[in-house]
Write a protein that binds this DNA or RNA. Structure first.
Length: 746
DNA sequence: ATAGGGTTAG
């Protein structure tokens, strides 16, 4: 720049002889254009008396580089109006502008022009045509140009690969890359970067590793772009350590490099590491951009950290990042996930620019809270404002209904979306399966899971987990085993969420041995798997096995959580292991710093009552920060039977009936307590009270066995609390429930 | 002439 400007000054000083020289004037325009000084170049260009093809090329190229694509195309037209024919230097720039604007027709016209004036043999022109067609999504046309080239250089190959990657045709991109390698064409950083991008999109571990290897063997410099692609690839396939390694050996890092690692940490739930990276980034004097903030806000949303979220929001306001739709959607999502949906709505209303993601974010927030009416309103409003819903929008509306128990509405929406041509995807199906299961329609959930496969959708890990959970709910060992078979045939047993669900399914379906068999096949066992197995043992009254597993998980260095303690205390409670239970409860609080839940207290109170230590049980209840629930009161009432504490029985009875006035079991417990104390007067009062409330003593169930079949007769319908008990009993016997509603009605 | 990052649904 400096030298050029000095020469320019010298030219001006020397007067018109040089300054008005046509050749020198053009050269000056080209010089300023190459230095990216747009205003000076344009100024000098406008003053040119004779505009030749070289100066036109320089100015059109500069406009194109600076992102003034329309100006570049206008220049191209003007140039021709002035009778100058664009050459093989101008045409590539014009094509680049067409590609950037996705102006297909203009691009085709330029293609026609290139053919007419015989430029098709130029590799620059042909490569640019491939790029232009690729950017416009016309891969067939790009391929046609590519195939028609007599002499192909690496840019042509790369443009073809890039075209495929940018249009989501990742397999094709990898294919072209391999062909290029077989042809012995030099693989450049662009080829490798594109391969890595395709591999990342496909979760193609081997291909991406090959790309990394080729980069190393080819001695390619690990610059910010290649390095970032490597980091991106390793993060997307879940090899975070390899991504970290690449990061640590990169010399030239830019904001994209940092953002990649930060977003990966957020994606894998390592929020502390992500925030630490932000601090390190700051100390390197890099300023956060909208991508950084999108990640920080997502981290705040995932961890319901409203304080962090607000800090992020404020940063966006101070640095004017709010106009970015992605950032705005993240802010919205953050408020929604931090359970401040009114703030989310406020952010939404203040947004000037909304896209489909923005609408879907708000819609998802209402759906998540089960506010199906609000969700539906948003769903219609977005259409009124000209944004047509995509499959995500439909999924949220369906979820909203299911969360609110509106099964029919959810199913209606499911068929309506199909009749409007929106195909349900794996998440739609999974939502439906999970929703039916939550709402107590386990059998229907299993049917939907089968229907999904008939529709040609391959089950995902989550859908399998949900289906297994449905099998567990209805104690359907037969269906559970069928899914286990599917899982085994498709090598999915190794996924820990699936293994955990299988263990849970088998134990709840009454087969703790099969549960144990699945448990043993998992090599690296994580806490949820241990919890499922411990819960199985607890349910089956095998407290010793449950305790042994608890010891084993600690030996493996895994920290038990509140769920572990719920299950293990439950096991101790049912097996009457008093000292073990109390010891566990103490260590849970003092060593593992788990805040005891109502369930934990319930187990311990029950244990203390079992051994007749009513005083200790009462002392514990006074210490806890919850109002005692019906379970706890029930335990105390049972303990009173041994102590004949009439005042306490009076108090507990009153409280119990306040909490659960409609549960006949409570009346039975109360009358038993009075009966033990010999207070027959109260016993008959309780019986009268029951009659008065129209309650009947739980009939339990009666059953007959005919051959292999057990017929169970229930009083009440499927939603009656007794039904749950029957499920549990049948599950423990490893049997399935089949409803015969006619018998049920009679 | 060709290359890298972020937001929404189970």
């Amino acid at each position: 720049m400096n030298t050029g400007q000095q020469i320019h000054a010298r030219i001006l000083k020397n007067g018109d002889f040089l300054a008005r020289n046509e050749y020198i004037e053009s050269k000056l325009v080209i010089f300023y254009a190459k230095c990216d000084i747009l205003d000076v170049a344009n100024h000098l260009f406008c003053r040119l008396r004779v505009k030749n093809v070289f100066s036109w090329a320089a100015v059109i190229g500069l406009n194109c580089r600076m992102g003034f694509t329309e100006e570049a195309l206008i220049g191209h037209v003007e140039m021709q109006e002035n009778g100058i024919l664009p050459d093989n230097f101008v045409v590539p720039n014009v094509l680049k502008a067409c590609g950037a604007l996705v102006w297909v027709k203009f691009g085709r016209a330029v293609h026609g022009y290139a053919l007419k004036v015989g430029l098709e043999g130029c590799v620059f022109v042909a490569s640019s045509l491939i790029d232009m067609y690729g950017k416009c999504g016309l891969l067939d046309d790009a391929k046609k140009v590519f195939d028609g080239m007599i002499e192909r250089n690496f840019v042509a190959w790369n443009s073809m690969i890039v075209g495929y990657v940018q249009n989501g045709l990742n397999e094709e991109a990898i294919g072209v890359f391999n062909e290029m390698r077989l042809e012995g064409i030099e693989l450049t950083p662009v080829s490798v970067v594109s391969l890595l991008s395709a591999s990342a999109n496909l979760d193609a571990l081997e291909e991406g590793k090959q790309g990394h290897a080729i980069a190393i063997i080819g001695g390619l410099e690990l610059d910010n772009i290649l390095g970032s692609s490597i980091i991106n690839f390793y993060s997307k396939v879940g090899l975070l350590e390899d991504a970290e390694l690449a990061f640590s050996i990169m010399v030239k890092k830019d904001i994209v490099t940092w953002n990649l690692l930060i977003s990966s940490y957020v994606q894998y739930g390592q929020v502390a590491k992500a925030l630490n990276m932000c601090h390190l980034m700051k100390s390197e004097n890099l300023k956060f951009d909208s991508v950084t903030l999108a990640s920080i806000l997502a981290a705040a949303a995932d961890t319901s950290n409203l304080k962090l979220g607000k800090e992020g929001h404020c940063y966006c306001i101070r640095n004017n990042l709010e106009p970015d739709v992605v950032v705005a959607s993240s802010i919205l999502d953050m408020y929604a996930k931090c359970e401040t949906i009114d703030d989310a709505k406020r952010v939404f209303n203040s947004m000037t620019h909304r896209d489909i993601v923005t609408w879907n974010t708000l819609l998802a927030a209402y759906a998540d809270f089960g506010l199906s009416g609000e969700a539906l309103r948003i769903f219609y409003q977005m259409q009124l404002e000209g944004v047509s819903p995509n499959v995500i929008s439909w999924n949220s509306v369906i979820l909203g209904f299911l969360r609110n128990g509106q099964l029919d509405e959810a199913k209606d929406m499911f068929s309506e979306m199909q009749s409007l041509g929106v195909q349900p995807n794996i998440i739609t199906w999974t939502t439906l399966i999970a929703g039916l299961a939550w709402n107590g329609h386990g059998n229907e959930a299993i049917l939907v899971f089968q229907k999904m496969q008939e529709a040609g959708i391959k089950p995902s890990a989550t859908s399998i987990t949900c289906a297994l959970s449905a099998c567990k709910d209805v104690a359907s060992l037969r269906n559970g085993r069928a899914i286990h078979g599917y899982v085994a045939r498709h090598d999915l047993c190794l996924l820990s969420p699936i293994a955990t669900s299988l263990v849970d399914m088998y134990s709840k379906c009454g087969n703790v041995d099969l549960a144990k068999r699945v448990f043993d096949t998992v090599l690296t066992k994580e806490l949820p798997l241990y919890n499922a197995m411990i819960s199985g043992y607890a349910l089956h009254g095998q407290a010793a096995e449950a305790l042994a597993l608890y010891k084993r998980l600690q030996k493996e260095g895994i920290n038990p959580d509140n769920i572990t303690f719920t299950n293990i205390l439950y096991a101790c409670n049912h097996a009457g292991l008093i000292s073990e239970g109390l010891e566990l409860f103490c260590s849970m609080i003092s060593e593992h710093h788990v805040k005891p839940s109502m369930e934990h207290y319930g187990c311990v109170v029950s244990l203390l009552c079992q051994c007749g230590n009513l005083d200790e049980a009462l002392r514990l209840i006074l210490k806890m920060s919850y109002e005692p629930d019906a379970h706890i009161i029930g335990s105390l009432l049972a303990a009173c039977r041994a102590h004949h504490e009439i005042d306490l029985v009076d108090y507990l009875s009153k409280r119990l009936l306040q909490l659960e006035p409609k549960n006949p079991g409570n009346y039975v417990a109360i009358s038993n307590a009075y009966a033990s104390a010999g207070n027959w007067n109260e016993v008959s009062k309780v019986r009268d009270l029951m009659k008065e409330k129209g309650l009947r003593k739980n009939p339990g169930c009666s059953w007959i066995q005919i051959g292999e079949e057990v017929h169970v007769f229930l009083a009440g319908d499927r939603s009656h609390p007794n039904t749950e008990h029957i499920y549990a009993i049948l599950a423990l016997l490893g049997m399935e429930m089949q409803f015969n509603t006619e018998i049920l009605r009679s």
